[in-house]
Design a protein around this nucleic acid. Structure first.
Lengths: 112, 112
DNA sequence: TGACATACATAGCCGTGTTAGGCATAATAC
DNA sequence: GTATTATGCCTAACACGGCTATGTATGTCA
């Protein structure tokens, strides 16, 4: 179980990085993150949807309704140019903190 | 400048890990974290003191007032047994999230 | 003596995850 | 045929916590 604080801190970089691989929709993003994390990160919809809305409002994401083959309506999100650029900043921040912890833990620093 | 969310997520593991090296007091912890992070993590007192109080209330830390050579009163914190044990859990959570990001970023996973 | 660093603390604002609920449709099970 | 599950979106109330601002006090140095 990942703490609330860590969930909050990782949401934005994870969403940006997932969408960097191609557009995706909310429900699917939750599954993808769960798989990538080997079931360790279990996002709730009540957490993710507001995050997506905020990020769209901030201009990081662009959404579009699409209908799947099964006839289901899905809201697909993709990165805006701003969003694509912001990944590097999020990454730099994360690595900075991670490497500080790495020093204290005596493990190898992380290089991009 | 590290985001508020990341500050929040890293506060507890950083405090625990700093105090694992020996007791220390609030004002000094801020300086140490700043140095360890090479000026990238700049904690405010308004952020740290409540964190220390909470962690003491949770039983992770134990505090004691001491007087330095200069005559200044300082509130020193050290890890309780519970606090010492909790480091491993914090570390595991952090690594889980970090390695998920690492996959998306195409960098090497982090092993403890 | 004035400025600055040290050292602690708290109050109000605001953002955000959690819990809980609501709505709708397709696939599956009985 | 119908009940259940999975899919898929959304929001509201609550609690927690960082930020900003402020207060208090003392040691050091110009």
């Amino acid at each position: 179980m990942i703490s609330k604080e860590l969930i909050g801190a990782s949401a934005k970089p994870l969403v940006l990085s997932v969408l960097a691989q191609g557009e995706d929709y909310g429900y699917s993003i939750i599954q993808r993150v769960r798989q990538l994390s080997e079931d360790q990160i279990e996002w709730t919809e009540g957490m993710l949807y507001p995050v997506l809305h905020r990020m769209e409002k901030e201009g990081l994401l662009v959404s579009s309704w699409q209908v799947s083959d099964s006839g289901r309506k899905r809201k697909y999100y993709r990165l805006s140019k701003t969003g694509a650029k912001s990944i590097a900043r999020e990454q730099a921040q994360w690595i900075a903190v991670h490497n500080t912890l790495a020093k204290l833990w005596g493990i190898k620093p992380c290089t991009v």
